[in-house]
Structure formats: C-alpha cells, structure tokens
C-alpha cells in the first residue's frame, strides 16, 4: 500500500470523483465566506479601532433611514444562504441516492463483521479475512451483517461507508476503477480492538483477478452451500409441496396472512428462516420451525443467496467467465413472473 504522506485520499472510483467534486464546490463556498467574514472583521477592527478622544464616528447613530437599509440587509443575508443550502442539499442528495441504490447485476460479496475481524466471501466461494480482492471495472455489492455489535464497513478510497448491524442486513456498493490497494476501516466504534478491525481492498485487473481466484483453494460457492443446506435441513420437503415455493420468490411482493404485503428481499428471507412466524405468507399454515441457533450468519447468507438464485435475480451461479472483456453483456433481470410449481434445480432429491 502507498504509505507516503498525502493530503487527499486516493480516488478509486467514479463515485469518489463525484464526491470530491462536491467537496471542492463546497470548499470554494466555505473559503469564500470564511475569508469574507475574516477580512471584514480584521478590516473593521483596524479601520475603526478605538482612538482616544475621537468618538465622532459614533455620532452617526442609526437613524430611521438606516432602519430600512438594515431590513434589506437582513433579508438579503437570510435569503442568499437559503438558496445556497437548497442547492447544496440537492447536489448532495443526488450523489447519495445513487450510492444507496445497488445496481441489480453487481457481483455480491458476503460480509460478516464480528469483534474484531471482517469475514468476506466471494460469489465464487473464496473466503478472505480482513482483505478483499475485487476486479476493476465491475460493480461490487456487499451484503453485510454483524454477529455482535455495530461495525462499519468504511472504504475511504471509494468514499463509501455503511454501518454493519447485528440482526439485519445492510448493503453497500462501489465500482472500483483504478487497480491498487486501498484501506478498509471499521468506522463504528466496536470495542477493544476497534482500530485493528482494518483491512485492505485489492483492486485487480479482471484477468488478474480471475487468475487469483482460480489459484485459491476451491471453496464452495455460497449458492451451492445454500443448496446443500436447503436439502440438509429438509427445507425442500415443504417448500416443494406444502409450503410457499422459493422459485421466483426473491424480489416479489408477498401477500401476508391478516392483510398487508412485504417485498421478499434479503432481510425478509433471513427473518423467515430464523423467525418463520414473523410474516406468514397468506394461505399457508404457520408450521415452519425456526432455524435460529442452528445456522451461523454465514450459513443463513448462503441460504439467502441460494433462494435468490432460484429467482434468477442475480448473476449467480457466478461465472468467472463474466470477468472477460468489459463489453460482456450482463444478464437482464426478469420481472417477477407468476408463481410456478417449484422447479428445483437438478441434484435435489
């Protein structure tokens, strides 16, 4: 990593550039006003410094005529900041809203934070601790959860940051453009070794990344691990017949017992595995047992990713071939079709 002294952080994504542009613009405004105020204060303090026995300036006490001017001034310096902050808000919101909406066809990496380390897993199954290798020019999305306290996955070079909560998935995405090594910081205080909960993001050329991944011991990809768990815990027995089908479930709007609907996202899937009675799909008896305490957060993530893959909503099962030339078309997302009788992938009993 480049450890030489620097005043500005590395800029490793387009988002980083747009944040920096915003910062520069704000900096310009701030410097202008700071200099304006400072100059005025210093100028007045010198120009109107107290001179013994010449208080004549004060005799020009505000007269009624000055009052009108004062009102104009007050309104001016209320309205100008008002317009300025409105512009600032819109500019900041525009960048933010985009950064909060993960693109649909990103490579999804799993992140589990715990005191005091980051456990990361590639869509191909490769596991890493406190380090993450990613291909440049690809959309990287992180599905994150904590096992204990609140952590934060902070990526200064990409100007991104998101708290990692216990009990609920959060998500963060970035698109690295410049190969290199970048900091990963835990930005939310999490206990004794908070400052050791750091790591490195390695951005590599796609071909290099492919080589790197293939050189790693073959781990089971999350989707495959999830599929095994799905069979192992007998999920398949119900969710093929009596229970709601998993095919095409992800991203769909589910009608709930007792009225109301919910969109089946990762958090919904997680909650349904751990606390099945929380949101019961209409028309099905609440008979599913809880898997709380039986599955680790990583296993739950595997299951969630497997169920997602049944909806065809992501690029899983992940093909390293996708890392070919950047012109490779990404798969479009089929809309949530009408629910079909479960079609389990081959290999299921």
């Amino acid at each position: 990593m480049d450890t030489s002294f620097r005043l500005l952080p590395q800029q490793a994504s387009d988002h980083a550039a747009s944040v920096d542009h915003l910062t520069l613009a704000m900096l310009f405004v701030s410097v202008f006003f700071t200099v304006l105020i400072a100059t005025l204060i210093i100028y007045f303090a010198i120009r109107y410094r107290r001179r013994p026995a010449s208080p004549s300036a004060l005799k020009e006490a505000p007269k009624s005529g000055a009052k009108h001017g004062a009102l104009v001034l007050e309104v001016t310096w209320t309205v100008i900041p008002l317009i300025m902050v409105a512009v600032m808000f819109l500019a900041g919101a525009r960048v933010f809203v985009r950064s909060q909406q993960p693109p649909v066809d990103a490579m999804t990496f799993n992140v589990v934070g715990k005191q005091w380390m980051w456990l990361l897993q590639h869509p191909t199954g490769v596991r890493e601790t406190n380090a993450l290798h990613v291909p440049a020019g690809k959309l990287i999305r992180l599905l994150m959860i904590s096992e204990d306290v609140i952590h934060d996955f902070g990526l200064p070079a990409f100007r991104m940051k998101q708290d990692v909560l216990p009990g609920r998935y959060t998500s963060e995405w970035f698109e690295p453009t410049v190969p290199g090594e970048y900091h990963l910081f835990c930005d939310q205080y999490c206990g004794s070794e908070h400052s050791k909960m750091v790591g490195t993001i390695f951005v590599m050329e796609p071909a290099q990344y492919r080589q790197w991944v293939e050189g790693r011991p073959a781990d089971v990809p999350p989707r495959v691990a999830g599929e095994k768990l799905f069979a192992q815990y007998g999920c398949v027995t119900c969710h093929a017949a009596r229970g709601p089908t998993m095919a095409g479930l992800y991203g769909r709007t589910v009608d709930l017992e007792g009225g109301g609907t919910v969109i089946a996202d990762e958090n919904y899937l997680r909650e349904s595995i751990l606390y099945p009675s929380a949101k019961i799909t209409r028309g099905y008896p609440p008979i599913m047992p809880s898997f709380r305490g039986q599955l680790t957060e990583e296993q739950v993530m595997d299951l969630v990713i497997y169920i997602k893959s049944l909806a065809g909503a992501t690029t899983e099962p992940y093909q390293l071939q996708n890392l070919g030339p950047a012109t490779q078309p990404h798969r479009a997302i089929p809309g949530p079709g009408p629910s079909q009788p479960t079609q389990l992938p081959k290999g299921q009993p």
């Binding site: 944040v19 910062t23 902050v85 500019a91 900041g92 933010f96 940051k161």
Partner: peptide, 17 residues
C-alpha cells in the same frame, strides 16, 4: 461551514465517523 459538508448527504457518507 464544515457543518454544511456534514449535512450534505453525499459528502457525509465519506466523512462520517
């Protein structure tokens, strides 16, 4: 004035904490 940076969503995400 630096408070304005923090109220600006896009910048705050970067400099938060």
């Amino acid at each position: 004035l630096t408070g304005l940076f923090l109220a600006t969503l896009g910048i705050d995400v970067h400099v938060h904490d």
